[in-house]
């Protein structure tokens, strides 16, 4: 019951955040010097042509009217029409998003699967084989840039030993290498945090109480310490997931995947303003949504949050 109300409250906050972000984006785009219509029309365009483009973009109306339209369209989930392709921004995003999202989800799952168990084991069995493995991994993960890893993976497993396809994006098999490239470095961050957080928890006094109760080491580690240790990990994992959605741009380039990243990159090259505007709002919403979900997780783990 309490949790439900908490979720509801956070959801309202999410809506508010989206409202604020989209307002900011609207004004930032208006404040940037240069008239989009001029850019779109080119140097040779006549005044009439420019006027026509302005009318098409809606930038001829007063700012307040534009803002009202923007908000109205947003509520209708309408992000406008791309200048270059003529398709609606929503449709474009809808085409591209599943790929990027799948990639990020695969990446984060991979990262979490590696990082959390290894981090916990390193903390529980300090100076053991696990700990060394963890240390080596986190060093490597920090040092190796993901695009480089991506290229190496391609060379190794698509060219030299053609286990995975070099191109294409139609099957999950195409996404394995990019997901590894994406998740590898992120996992190192999560691993380090998990280990540090677990070590920290294990040195707290309530662990002494648990020992005084005669609990087994297993209960102490996994029942008492783990939940407390995961609290900061959840937040960071959420942020990492957000990064992956954004960071996928580079990996999408390396693996020639037609994801969101490439769509927005293209929009920027082409100065497709509605697409840029819609894209930024979309990414912002995804970020807020991720945050929202992280908050919920966080509150399940940490009862103190639910009170305030």
């Amino acid at each position: 019951m309490n949790l439900l109300l908490f979720v509801l409250k956070r959801f309202l906050r999410l809506l508010l955040t989206i409202l604020i972000i989209s307002t900011i984006i609207f004004f930032v785009i208006r404040v940037i010097p240069g008239d989009p219509a001029l850019v779109v029309a080119g140097i040779d365009a006549s005044d009439e042509e420019i006027q026509a483009i302005r009318a098409k973009l809606g930038t001829d109306a007063p700012v307040t009217v534009q803002y009202a339209r923007w908000m109205r369209d947003l509520v209708r989930l309408d992000l406008g029409t791309s200048l270059t392709s003529g398709q609606s921004v929503k449709a474009l995003i809808r085409q591209r998003f599943p790929l990027t999202f799948t990639l990020a989800v695969l990446g984060i799952i991979l990262g979490v699967i590696i990082a959390i168990p290894l981090g916990v084991l390193s903390a529980v069995h300090r100076w053991s084989l696990w700990d060394y493995l963890g240390m080596v991994y986190s060093q490597a993960g920090m040092a190796i840039p993901s695009f480089w890893l991506g290229i190496i993976l391609l060379l190794l497993f698509s060219v030299k030993f053609p286990i995975f396809p070099l191109f294409g994006s139609d099957s999950l098999k195409n996404l394995v290498l990019p997901a590894i490239a994406l998740g590898f470095a992120r996992a190192a961050v999560i691993l380090r945090l998990t280990r540090a957080s677990m070590v920290d928890e294990l040195s707290k006094e309530y662990i002494i109480t648990a020992r005084a109760k005669g609990l087994t080491e297993k209960m102490i580690n996994y029942k008492h310490a783990l939940k407390n240790a995961l609290i900061p990990v959840v937040t960071v994992t959420g942020i990492q997931f957000g990064y992956m959605l954004g960071g996928a741009i580079i990996i999408e380039q390396v693996f020639s995947l037609p994801g969101l990243g490439r769509l927005f990159l293209y929009a920027i090259y082409q100065r497709d303003f509605p697409l840029i505007q819609g894209g930024v709002v979309f990414i912002a919403v995804i970020f807020s949504l991720t945050n929202f979900i992280v908050d919920i997780f966080y509150s399940v783990l940490n009862p103190k949050i639910r009170i305030s």
């Binding site: 309490n2 409250k9 639910r306």
Partner: peptide, 8 residues
């Protein structure tokens, strides 16, 4: 007053 944990 510490209200319960809700909106209401």
């Amino acid at each position: 007053i510490f209200s319960g944990h809700g909106l209401l």
